[in-house]
């Protein structure tokens, strides 16, 4: 089982109903990997969020790049595969601060801001966060196994855990 790997790159999102598929966001740093899973229909989705909000002058549609639009997009896509918001199990990982360095005199902790922005978006979309593994100063890889909705976080030197 679970041997079709779909890699979710920076700013991308994807939904699957195929029980042999595993959605993966490799090497999350300050980015957030967000997973939604509806156990009733066996459908799940993942978004790889890069930044908290879409700049107002941005010309591109952003995909799942920005937390303020990514959450609703992912949830809507999962609904198209039969998911219902009330049943969606929501998990997230990432939002670390790996590069603690002031640049031009000020520093933005993008990881922290991403975490907060995703939380806000979830609330706005009527979704409840079940569990998370966020913050700290280390990278993470996030996997969502579609056949049972298992979400696994792996790290370098800190082992692996099931969320």
């Amino acid at each position: 089982m679970s041997d079709r790997i779909v890699s979710i790159g920076l700013g991308e999102f994807s939904v699957s109903v195929d029980p042999e598929t595993t959605l993966v966001a490799y090497g999350l740093g300050s980015c957030i990997g967000l997973t939604l899973y509806d156990p009733e229909v066996g459908a799940g989705g993942m978004a790889h969020v890069v930044l908290p909000e879409r700049p107002s002058n941005s010309a591109d549609d952003g995909g799942a790049k920005y937390a303020d639009t990514a959450v609703d997009r992912l949830a809507a896509e999962l609904e198209r595969s039969g998911g219902k918001r009330g049943r969606m199990v929501v998990k997230m990982a990432g939002g670390a601060q790996l590069l603690a360095l002031p640049l031009n005199g000020h520093h933005w902790d993008i990881g922290e801001r991403n975490i907060n922005a995703v939380r806000k978006s979830l609330a706005r979309c009527g979704l409840v966060l079940a569990t998370h593994d966020v913050g700290g100063a280390h990278g993470r890889t996030l996997r969502l196994h579609i056949h049972d909705g298992r979400v696994v976080v792996s790290t370098i030197g800190r082992g692996e855990k099931i969320l």
Binding site: Y26, G27, C31, A96, L98, I110, G139
Partner: peptide
């Protein structure tokens, strides 16, 4: 750490 985590954090 993971190369991807470092490079993506720098991009962000």
């Amino acid at each position: 750490d993971m190369a991807g985590a470092i490079l993506s954090a720098a991009l962000a």
